[in-house]
């Protein structure tokens, strides 16, 4: 799923099966993606994907590859600092970001622009006004 979505690097995931697709992509990122990406999201988004059972996911840890924040503002600060670190020479794997834009689409878009040229895959729950949208269907 993530290979398919890798270009362009940000996409809205909309439609009746969006949540199922996002959960499958989240699992893929942490379990089977050989790039061993860092995965970043909020507890709210994790609860959306896992129907309120985020604590069961967070408890696992994933060798510090999973970063779950309470607020979008914290995610944005983390991502900006990480982009600065990468630009100053620090090695980092692919970063996969799960978010729900809603009223925060402009802030999220600024963060994506901050990551221009760096290795970020951003997957957004719902319609994404600043880029492409996909409507996944189950096989």
């Amino acid at each position: 799923l993530l290979r398919d979505i890798a270009r362009p690097v940000h996409s809205g995931i909309a439609g009746a099966f969006a949540n199922d697709w996002l959960r499958a992509a989240f699992v893929e990122a942490l379990v089977s993606d050989e790039r061993l990406p860092d995965v970043i999201t909020t507890r709210h988004d994790l609860d959306l994907m896992f129907c309120g059972q985020s604590s069961q996911v967070i408890a696992h840890g994933f060798n510090e590859r999973l970063h779950v924040f309470e607020a979008l503002e914290e995610v944005v600060e983390h991502l900006e600092a990480k982009a600065d670190d990468i630009r100053s020479g620090q090695a980092a794997p692919t970063t996969v970001w799960f978010a729900t834009p809603g009223d925060d689409a402009d802030v999220i878009h600024q963060t994506i622009e901050y990551w221009a040229g760096l290795d970020l895959i951003a997957l957004f729950h719902g319609n994404w006004s600043h880029g492409p949208n996909r409507h996944p269907q189950p096989a």
């Binding site: 799923l1 099966f17 199922d20 697709w21 959960r23 499958a24 989240f26 699992v27 942490l30 379990v31 896992f50 129907c51 059972q53 069961q56 996911v57 696992h60 994933f62 996944p136 269907q137 189950p138 096989a139």
Partner: peptide, 17 residues
């Protein structure tokens, strides 16, 4: 197209990893 997966199965996959 993708294969849908119940939440419980997703959690099990994550916890097995």
């Amino acid at each position: 197209l993708f294969t849908t997966q119940p939440v419980s199965e997703s959690i099990a996959l994550l916890q097995q990893s």
